[in-house]
Amino acid sequence: MSAQASEVPAKRKKVAFLDREATSVTEAFLQRLLVGVHTFLSNGLAVAGLSIILLLIAVAAFAPWIATHDPNLQNLSMALKPPSSVNWFGTDEYGRDIFSRIVYGSRVTLYIVTLVTITVGPIGLIVGTVSGYYGGTVDMIVMRITDLFLAFPGLILTLTFVAILGPGLEQAVLAIALTGWPAIARLARAETMTIRSSDYIAAARLQGASSLRIIFGSIIPVCMSSVIVRLTLGMASVILTAAGLGFLGLGAQPPTPEWGAMTSAGREYMLDSWWLVTAPGVAIMVVSLAFNLFGDGLRDVLDPKSK
């Protein structure tokens, strides 16, 4: 019996709300949520990640007030100026303020991340759970399709889709989403397969629950945690892919201030004007690192066994 420890509650700081007996389902859920938040907050790196993400959101929301210049205003007399008190991160080859472009660029980054996540998550989750729950022919067909997607290197496949759909921000989002869902579906399916044979699913069936009710009421809530963690960890690679597409000129089109495209444009001037690539490069790195740290912290809370 290795579980003696859990038999006797250890000392914990008293928090009135957490220590009182829940009197409704909502309250029980909130208590559970708070305990999770508490665990998350005790992880310093994860909190750092979350802070950066919150900062990113704030910057995107208040871009017009934070930016010092119009991000698209060209001023050739000011071209390629190094960082100064007027242009904090310097200016690019058209004399546009890089700081302001980075600030507005956060909107583009968030737009891509959000759009990809809200399409990939539900699609992957539903396809994976349905396929895992029913098994048989449905499962075989769906899994062969995901095999097909997973057989290509992600970026190559994305490039192919963009080539078909044509360059542009929306097309880039669509292409990233198209290549992203199979991984999520695989994960959800694997989880479903183990949950499917558990006694609590058998009990649900014995109560007369329909397959749909079991999938949505019992299986998805359990799969959700690992899918959320995977999505969060995947956001970093979404940002990198989007930047990569921008860099290759297949993502956001000029003059949209997209970080990858900015890095690409600055490449020609890299030797003389280092700030052109450095600023957006650092922005990409910091934000993807933040999503990774946040995802790791989330995993410790939602999915402690895979630590």
């Binding site: 003696q4 420890a5 006797v8 250890a10 000392k11 914990r12 700081k13």
Partner: peptide, 11 residues
């Protein structure tokens, strides 16, 4: 005794 996150548990 086990050193737990939130105190010591005497087994």
């Amino acid at each position: 005794a086990f050193q737990m996150q939130r105190g010591v548990f005497q087994a």
